[in-house]
Design a protein around this nucleic acid. Sequence first.
DNA 1: TTATCGGTAGACAAAACGGTCTACTTTGTT
DNA 2: AACAAAGTAGACCGTTTTGTCTACCGATAA
Lengths: 181, 181
Amino acid sequence: MSRKRQILVDTALQLFYEKGVNSVGINELLKVSGIAKKTLYNHFDSKQALVLAALKQRNDKFMTWLEMNLNEASTDKEVIARLFHGLSAWFTDSAAELGNFRGCFFINTSSEFSDPCSDVSQYCQYHKRQVRALISKHLSNPSPELLDTICVLKEGAITIAYVNKDFSMPQKCISILDKLL
Amino acid sequence: MSRKRQILVDTALQLFYEKGVNSVGINELLKVSGIAKKTLYNHFDSKQALVLAALKQRNDKFMTWLEMNLNEASTDKEVIARLFHGLSAWFTDSAAELGNFRGCFFINTSSEFSDPCSDVSQYCQYHKRQVRALISKHLSNPSPELLDTICVLKEGAITIAYVNKDFSMPQKCISILDKLL
DNA sequence: TTATCGGTAGACAAAACGGTCTACTTTGTT
DNA sequence: AACAAAGTAGACCGTTTTGTCTACCGATAA
């Protein structure tokens, strides 16, 4: 993997996440990254291929960050606490690895690609499955019911944080799960 | 209000919801609606003004639909059941008033406008507050805790339905709320 | 009749879009 | 030293973007 390619993907992820994929043009991306257009099309067939690479990069970063948060937990209660405390940190820009919060990159990008069969939409779906599997791995009792509950609360908390600018949901989600266990 | 104006807003809502705001150009919209460009700019200052009008139209439709679903409920349990059964119908394209499901128009549109201070983002936030208030109105015990729980589950169910194409969440949300009451 | 108003059709503008291509320079390897 | 690969700058292409403007049409009302 070329160094230039990595710069391109990094810049793409940063700009795409900050402004939305369809609001960032190739030329702007090249200007910011300081890389020539030919080099971009030497590494990627199209803008969409670059979008896909940015999604993968984000998935790697997110999974690493989540793993780091969860692997210190021993009980299920702790897994839940660490998960939602992590989200809370993310929302308030206290998770440096994830950058300034602007919602979930995968939800946002999925919204911009109306074709559910496109590579982009499919990858967003894949990411959500990956996250679910990682949470499952850390639970001592990974019943589908508990997993569903955690995941639906997680998605709700992210959406409310982004659309309503209300960052208090993670704490409330912990309370809800507390009552259920 | 002019008849042409109404056609414009209807067409805009349909196309914007189906494909995403930034993926639909003014010219395409004019072609589909069969209205002249001058007429559009006679009624609206800019594309963004039209987006805002489409959001308002959607808000009206959604609130009417939700009200219709909730006003037959007498107990809190019934409110919850009708809310999530309604969502389930929406997801599976069985709610004619809301059109073919492509996620929440307000979440999707919010994703495309990165500036949280823009009229568009502000209106999306307003819509979510409206929905919360309507649910609250129908609850006999509208405690903030219960309301928060319902809303976070609702947003989670919508997101999972759209990104993961999993339409089973509403039913599971009812079970969760059942255990909590 | 005549003036006005809302509408039509579409040319036009200026910029931005994704993507291709050429000609040149840098870099790394043998 | 020589050569190939990779990168650079940016002109260029055709299309599309939002938005303006002109010239005209048809109905309604004084």
